Amino acid sequence: MSRHWLLFLLILVLTFLAQLVLDWWSAALVPLLLGAALGRRGGRAFLAGAAGVGLGWLLAATWSELRTDGLLTHRVAQLLPLGGHDWLVVLITTILGALVGGLAALTGCWLRLAVRPEKGFEGKGVRV
């Protein structure tokens, strides 16, 4: 299994488990730490973090939507200017989760490269 897929799966599973105990911000903490530990390139770390957290939040929001018959998401959609459309809340949740996870993993990867650059890349900037 490639390092990119391993990073994606670890972010997906560990973020899900962390959010059972911690608050929503664990969706940034887990990809940050895993991006620093396993991320080789910034672009791939971003994609792994975005896909891992985004997919996790999509599954959780969809499960909540289906389990409660859309009661909570419909009320949130009425509070926001979404015209009462339940699935727009799920879509926005997924996009926000993907951005949080992707930027956290990218930050972790870049922090590791700033502290300990790979051989052959000194003075050439960070590869994305």
Results as ranks from 00 to 15, higher is better:
Leu38Cys: 13
Val53His: 01
Thr73Ile: 04
Ala61Glu: 02
Pro31Gly: 08
Leu72Val: 07
Gly42Pro: 01
Leu59Arg: 02
Trp24Glu: 12
Gly49Ala: 07
Leu47Tyr: 06
Ala48Leu: 03
Ala37Trp: 15
Gly43Trp: 14
Leu66Ala: 14
Arg44Thr: 13
Ala28Asp: 06
Leu71His: 03
Leu33Phe: 14
Leu71Lys: 02
Ala45Cys: 12
Leu59Thr: 05
Leu34Pro: 08
Ala27Leu: 04
Gly52Tyr: 03
Leu58Arg: 03
Leu58Cys: 05
Arg40Ser: 13
Leu66Pro: 00
Trp25Tyr: 13
Ala60Asp: 04
Ala45Pro: 15
Gly70Glu: 03
Leu20Trp: 13
Arg40Ala: 12
Ala61Val: 03
Val53Ile: 05
Leu34Gln: 12
Leu66Asp: 01
Arg40Asn: 11
Leu34Phe: 12
Thr73Ala: 07
Arg67Thr: 15
Trp25Arg: 04
Ala61Cys: 05
Leu58Ser: 08
Ser26Ala: 15
Trp63Thr: 13
Leu22Arg: 14
Ala48Asp: 04
Leu59Ser: 05
Gly56His: 01
Leu71Ser: 04
Arg75Ala: 07
Gly43Val: 13
Trp25Leu: 15
Leu59Phe: 14
Leu32Cys: 11
Val21Ala: 10
Gly70Ser: 10
Ala37Thr: 13
Ala37Val: 12
Ala36Pro: 06
Leu22Gln: 12
Ala51Cys: 07
Trp24His: 10
Ala77Leu: 00
Leu71Thr: 02
Pro31Val: 03
Ala51Glu: 01
Gly70Phe: 02
Val53Phe: 07
Leu55Gly: 04
Gly49Met: 10
Leu72Trp: 02
Gly42Ile: 10
Leu59Gly: 14
Arg44Phe: 14
Leu47Thr: 05
Gly54Glu: 00
Leu22Asn: 13
Gly52Ile: 01
Ala28Phe: 08
Ala50Glu: 02
Leu33Tyr: 11
Ala50Tyr: 01
Leu47Gly: 14
Ala28Val: 06
Ala48Tyr: 03
Glu65Arg: 11
Gly49Phe: 09
Ser26Asp: 04
Ser64Ala: 15
Gly42Arg: 05
Ala37Tyr: 13
Asp23Ile: 13
Arg67Asp: 14
Ala60Gly: 04
Phe46Val: 13
